[in-house]
């Protein structure tokens, strides 16, 4: 990994911590996963101009893609709150100690669980 990449990863850590903290999230305790995802985001920023989520698909439409810039929690809040993690798992709820215990719930499953109530 280049020095530039590492430096940018550190900047992301600082900036994104500021955003996620008031939302009740923290970086995942799975540091290996966090390092991998942040590196992907640095590479995505270099290639596409923004640190997009490494696990969600871009369409090229600004309105859609801007909602996938990390941290994208504000635009998917209820869905992510239900999983106690964001889609890629970079962030988890502050009370989560064991991120491997969390499962990804698809958008459709989440919507279905909501209408059941």
């Amino acid at each position: 990994m280049s020095v530039d990449t590492e430096k940018r990863m550190e900047q992301f850590r600082t900036m994104f911590q500021r955003v996620i903290d008031p939302l009740g999230y923290k970086f995942s305790p799975d540091t290996e996963l966090v390092d991998f995802l942040l590196e992907q985001e640095v590479l995505l920023e270099k290639e596409k101009g923004n640190p997009y989520c490494p696990c969600q698909g871009l369409t090229g439409e600004r309105e859609h893609d801007m909602q996938l810039v990390c941290p994208c929690i504000p635009f998917h809040r209820e869905h992510f709150d239900a999983m106690k993690r964001c889609w890629c798992g970079l962030y988890v709820h502050k009370d989560v100690d064991d991120p491997d215990s969390l499962v990804q719930i698809s958008k459709k499953e989440f919507e279905a669980s909501r209408t059941k109530v």
């Binding site: 698909g57 889609w87 990804q104 698809s106 958008k107 459709k108 499953e109």
Partner: peptide, 28 residues
């Protein structure tokens, strides 16, 4: 791919796994 995801009522969240007729979105 986008149309396929949308037709299943899903967004493009990956992995999008089709097993026979069933769809599992996410690592599960």
């Amino acid at each position: 791919i986008r149309e396929d995801c949308l037709s299943h009522g899903e967004e493009m969240s990956f992995p999008f796994v089709k097993i026979g007729e069933d769809v599992v979105v996410g690592y599960n």
